[in-house]
């Protein structure tokens, strides 16, 4: 016991150059990321600004009880998880399809051009993205309504942005639009690294192109799919705040209000600081549980882990 302690400090002393290099970063992360965690104590108070932190009334778990009995809370939880899952699954699905399609293109110039174009939406902000989405869906000459009317599918423009039941779909579709090209990069890289001899052998055995995709390419993507799932499962509670905030409006709020919007409304608009902080704690706790579970499952399956 004593010995190992000694060697730890001895080692630390020996590596003082590295310690010195990393010390500012440790202080930095503590100030900017961990001191705000101290603010979590507000969740156990009935915080009122203007009074010092220690003169606040302590209320125990009252805020958590209020949160869990809040009628909106379950809508918020449902919206947060539903939209994240829709985005995660549709984003992955279309990125994989795009990677598979690009891999089948033999016309190199066309392939390069398509890839370059497909990255474009990734590089624009959601402010621009939301603007483009709202233009396309507008009732006043929006392209989607024009096309649908031109094809005689509808006879008057649909107010897409005002229909609560369409909101999740719009979020999913605009997410795919913005991320599909960039998302395909990792899948395509995994496909390119598959040994050509596998395909050659399959051709000799008489496998068709579709069969080669089904039995060689798709299985090879499994590791990258799993690692991306693990990374994203931990983010389910935090995914895509800006997109949802910018596309949301009063008419669809029942389906668009996610945790961060909920915290914003209660915290900044209604000044219920303690309550908003409680919601934030809940969000972080669920994230941690999710990421550690995903990590465990991956470990059991013998896949690579994140932490």
């Amino acid at each position: 016991m004593k010995r190992s302690e000694n060697t730890f400090w001895q080692k630390l002393w020996k590596q003082k150059a590295l310690v010195l290099m990393s010390l500012p970063f440790i202080i930095y992360v503590i100030i900017f990321k961990y001191i705000p965690l101290w603010g979590w104590l507000m969740a156990f108070q009935n915080y009122w600004p203007g009074q010092s932190f220690f003169n606040q009334t302590w209320v125990g778990l009252e805020n958590f009880r209020l949160l869990l009995t809040d009628p909106i809370f379950y809508d918020v939880l449902r919206n947060t998880l539903a939209m994240s899952l829709i985005k995660l699954i549709s984003g992955m699905f279309f990125s994989i399809i795009l990677a598979l399609a690009l891999n089948e293109v033999r016309w190199t110039k066309f392939k390069k051009l398509t890839q370059t174009i497909s990255y474009l939406p990734h590089f624009i902000s959601w402010v621009v993205g939301a603007n483009l989405v709202m233009n396309a869906l507008s009732t006043d000459g929006g392209i989607i309504n024009e096309v649908l009317m031109g094809l005689n599918i509808i006879d008057s423009p649909i107010m897409f942005m005002g229909m609560p039941e369409l909101f999740w779909g719009i979020i999913g579709a605009s997410h795919v639009w913005k991320t599909v090209g960039f998302g395909a990069i990792l899948y395509l890289a995994s496909i390119v690294s598959i040994s050509p001899s596998l395909y050659e052998a399959a051709v000799i055995d008489g496998a068709s192109r579709l069969q080669r995709i089904r039995y060689i390419t798709l299985p090879a993507l499994k590791p990258v799919i799993i690692i991306l799932l693990i990374i994203n499962v931990g983010r389910l509670m935090n995914m895509g705040f800006e997109q949802i905030y910018l596309l949301s409006n009063g008419r669809v709020i029942e389906y668009s209000r996610i945790f961060r919007i909920f915290e914003l409304d209660y915290g900044l608009k209604m000044m219920r600081y303690s309550f908003a902080t409680t919601a934030g704690i809940f969000r972080s706790l669920v994230s941690v549980v999710l990421v550690f579970s995903a990590n465990k499952i991956a470990k059991m399956m013998g896949e690579e882990r994140l932490i």
Partner: peptide, 24 residues
């Protein structure tokens, strides 16, 4: 490096645990 795991952990954790809007 002896502090390698510790530093990695305190940074990776920030991806999932945040103080939230009001405390920040």
């Amino acid at each position: 490096f002896v502090l390698r795991k510790f530093i990695t952990f305190i940074y990776v954790l920030t991806m999932y645990v945040q103080g939230g809007l009001i405390p920040t």
